[in-house]
Nucleic acid binder design. Structure first.
Lengths: 307, 307
DNA sequence: GTCCTTCCATCTGCAAAACAGATGGTTTGC
DNA sequence: GCAAACCATCTGTTTTGCAGATGGAAGGAC
């Protein structure tokens, strides 16, 4: 014994209190009464504190015992959660799940999934990162995140495996006061090129020098999507946005969808997929999260209220 | 043995990690190496989890081991607290001061007070716990702490006596890149409701099902305040924070105060009070601490530098 | 490359512990 | 006043954990 106090002391102590008598505690613990008696007095010796008043028929907790009982319960419950955590680990559950999500992915879906995740896997912390474009791939590639909810880029990543989740509609928008909105029919490409385009920059080097959907020679490059959103509403330029982020503005009229010539009328679709290293497939928690995202995203009706 | 895992398992585990090798742990624990080896592998058997990677010269913690180590440390320190408490009880003199402080209370004030306390009462050990919301009341209610520096909750605790210390200003903040910060005038409630709100969860059952200041239907619940802080800075959502924790970020511009419609411009004030059991008024040391907190908090100018 | 140290796992006998069961004293309810 | 249930203490037996020894592997020194 490394130390006078052991968990058996505490467990016996708690059982004695809960069962109301040493004998009952012994029955519960599958021991004989003398054993319980011994453990309890051993604990009292260790502490130098009398835990029970034994004058009556049933032992009664002393005031000191009440306080120490609270400590004991805390300790034992700590051990129990530790064991529960270990059991989950043994079954292959991830110790924590690090996920990077592309900014284009609907926040409402992520937040609902995170909430559901927290109640489904209360012992597995979820670490969420939000990044854009190529920068969102980086954590998956270098192993900081075991899972990425990412937009499919026209680049191959041989070390990654992906699983399609669905599409995010992209639309070209401009403020209602922007000159481009005067076109109520299809806007030709060369017309777009005359106006300032707001483009999301890629913070990573993965996509260095490659642009997607850049039409206009005059561009402003913004590092984050909500800034771009703000600039669009301020009529600084036009640009593409995921539909779910601008739906409200379109409904309220502050932003207008541009009907661009070589875009399908429904807008361009950005495929979102779950990515992970081929060498490290997701465990149960990651698997669950992917499936949950898939399911909750095809029926997103009840999430409309939220952002 | 009532249960597979014992405190000796945990203590050996911790020693092995801290000392860096089983042999060193054995020396520290005054045991032979084979004993440590046996205990560690016993613990691994119990958990069904491999705690150390033994392929190298020195055993190396596995990722699972890291997480379980945190549990183990918590448990063992709980036992130490319990023993310290028992020792004080046995000696009869109740010279120790156990205080629980709400996370919302300014850290700088607490640490300054603790420093002053140590030089004023060098022989009185001070035991500080930090908890949040309802969970911070629990130790005062069950007597484990004789004093609580707590936020006033809209719930009555008839067994407690309180004494007002002052107010902590709460402000609603969001990252500078968050869409809400574009409002430079008062933000209506319904606008806040459109965005993800970060909410501190209450670990205790005291406030079960009751929320304070929750405005948005979409929330993320975080178990600790520094995580919430990090998430706010990552622009994951908006939320309320005590002013003292975000002052630096506001000054540097990384966080922005949201001017919420039904909040006074100075922000909402959270009243902090010193609580103790009505039946057990604080002794001289507790009394001094309360008074010191009161005094040092109304003149907090010289604490600004500290966090 | 080879030696030498230091590490870990495993095995063995031995000592200490924790166990079940028995006994006796005490309280409580009938 | 008696039976039942409680607790403390004692005793022999079983189990557990201990130290010490042995062997294999890793890594630094030369």
């Amino acid at each position: 014994m490394l130390d006078g106090v052991s968990l058996d002391h505490l467990r016996t102590f708690i059982a004695a209190v809960d069962e109301g008598s040493f004998s009952a505690a012994a029955r519960k613990l599958n021991r004989v009464q003398s054993a319980v008696s011994g453990w309890v007095s051993g604990l009292e010796d260790q502490f130098g504190v009398v835990l029970f008043d034994r004058s009556g028929r049933f032992p009664k907790l002393t005031p000191e015992g009440v306080l120490l009982l609270a400590d004991a319960r805390g300790i034992v419950s700590g051990v129990d959660t530790m064991k529960a955590r270990a059991k989950l680990m043994a079954s292959g559950l991830e110790t924590e799940l690090s996920v990077v999500v592309d900014v284009f992915f609907p926040t409402a879906v992520v937040s609902a999934a995170a909430k559901a995740f927290a109640s489904r896997f209360p012992l597995t912390p979820l670490r969420l990162f939000v990044e854009g474009l190529g920068a969102a791939y980086q954590p998956v590639l270098d192993g900081r995140c075991s899972l990425g909810i990412l937009a499919t880029l026209p680049v191959a990543f041989p070390s990654l495996v992906s699983e399609r989740l669905g599409e995010v509609p992209l639309v070209a928008v401009a403020s209602s006061s922007h000159p481009l909105t005067r076109f109520n029919h299809r806007i030709p490409r060369h017309e777009l090129a005359k106006h300032l385009q707001l483009v999301l920059t890629d913070r990573s080097d993965l996509m260095a020098g490659r642009d997607f959907g850049v039409v206009s020679p005059s561009t402003w490059r913004l590092a984050d999507l909500s800034t771009k959103h703000a600039f669009l509403k301020d009529s600084i330029g036009w640009g593409g946005m995921p539909l779910h982020m601008v739906e409200k503005d379109i409904a309220s009229g502050s932003l207008v969808v541009l009907d661009v010539d070589d875009m399908p009328p429904s807008g361009f679709m950005l495929t979102m997929s779950a990515y992970h290293q081929a060498s490290e497939p997701p465990g149960p928690a990651g698997r669950w999260l992917i499936d949950h995202l898939k399911d909750s995203w095809v029926h997103p009706s009840d999430l409309k209220r939220e952002q």
